[in-house]
Design a protein around this nucleic acid. Sequence first.
RNA 1: GGCGCUAUCGUCUAGUGGUUAGGACGGCGGGUUUUCAUCCCGUAAACGGGAGUUCGAUUCUCCCUAGCGCUACCA
Length: 525
Amino acid sequence: MVRTRFAPSPTGYLHIGGLRTALYCYLFARKNKGNFLLRIEDTDQERFVEGAVENLIKTLSWIGIEYDEGPLLDGSEKGKFGPYTQSKRTELYTKHADELIEKGHAYRCFCTKEHLEEMRSAQENAKLPPMYDRTCAKLPKSEIEEKLKAKIPFVVRQKMPYELIKFKDLVRGNVQFDGKTIDDQVLIKSDGFPTYHLANVVDDHLMKISHVIRGEEWLPSTPKHIALYNAFGWEHPEFAHVPLLLNEDKSKLSKRQGDVSVESYIEKGYLKEAIINFAAFLGWNPGSGEEKEIFTLEELEKVFSIEHVHKAGAIFNIEKLDWFNWKWQKEIFNKKIFALAKKIDAKVEIDLSRKDQPKFLFTSEDKEEKFKEEKGKYLLEICEKHLDKKYLSDKNILKMLVTVEEKILRDPKEISSQIDFYFTLPNYPKELLTNEKMGVDFSWAKKSLENAQQDLEKLDDWKVSEIKNVLTKIVEKFSCKNGQVFWPLRAALSGLEFSPGVFEIAHTLGKKESLTRIEKALKNL
RNA sequence: GGCGCUAUCGUCUAGUGGUUAGGACGGCGGGUUUUCAUCCCGUAAACGGGAGUUCGAUUCUCCCUAGCGCUACCA
């Protein structure tokens, strides 16, 4: 039985790297019809962040990664091996540490932190690898008894076996470490809490984890864990160390260099489908010449395999995320249009002349004309205007579709005469109004917007053709490129980088709203 | 310093003992679009270096180099 787990420590938000690890664990479990569980590793009291667990659970559930066992948001537990929060299992670890001491695989260490630090810096100065010298391992029983009676604080250290430790990693193949080069790890801290190494091994065993899938940073710790499994007389699980996610400069992905929290991408409006799709492909691919890149979670569950996980680290490249997002936006938009059409009893056809950009034709069985006049008219208008456009966020798509859906179902006639625009103007960055490539800098944007404001103010007949006329004249006046006037204006009106055309937006918004938005944009500059 | 992992276009990657080394993102060029964007087409762009094995290595082996990770009473 395959059982995997995602075991984050609640020290902040779930970041992209964590998400990808969780995703791989989840996909591997699903692919092999096994279980996936969530375990909270909160053994470090100092780094614990209030609300981090709740956040983690929420983010995971938003993204659609469901676990079979683990803590729930309401405080209850799902699964019979729980509790799945390590701080609630402390006696368990102490018990197991005692067992190790008895068997001679661990020992109590009474050295003070100051003493250890001194030793370490002395070793570093002598260019020796910093390691504990096992003073306390050689303590006679009587002395240990005395120190325990005197209540001198101590930690429990693992007694690393001085032998070659070999194992097979599912991603990296055969790996080996020399036990002599590995320090005696602290297993139980002086505050009574276990360290990762002990808690992780004990829990993975008790929870019957078959495959440990985790980040590559754990590879050097794996021999410590294997030694622990051996000491307990347990069989160790399979290990798969997945490649690290990297910053632009190839260092381990960190908060320092840009946004890494999944939440921030959610807030920015990225679709979960895009985030999953992107994360999955960072260090993995379906292999064997497969050129399909767009996958749903369900599809990934079917094709995921650990053999195709890459060995080298992958740089987190936001441009590719944007592309995935764009693809998914279209996908979802199209699906919703289909669903909507079905609801209003319309037929949808796809014009395949434009690949990847289906055009929707709305027809009705026997009363085509009537249909077009009523329900279809608005829908057609929406589709013609917006279908080819790129939207920045799911919120906008959903908002638009909900509006369309509600209104069409309620009173189709009312809508076709009065189109209100569903975009609320966000607080867009002023950089949106500029476009380097097009030669639009701040002063250009200002000039364009001011002229547009003046001339549109005078316009009484607020038709698309008239608006176009006015704006084209400005272009002529400056003898510049169309985009130099249209770009800042469109951005100002829509607040979006990609949106319907300027004239359509201006017309749809109406004169008053349009001028208000231009005014706002000018203030922003 | 010690230990370990890794190495194909700028980025994500496919791939093989003999290939025109393939795709995607981004770039560039052109076309469509009444306009910017979208969309379409085209294009440039990579096997880190050195030995060895071999008729032949990007592919197998070794060395070097570089990058990264770990080296805590953090995970």
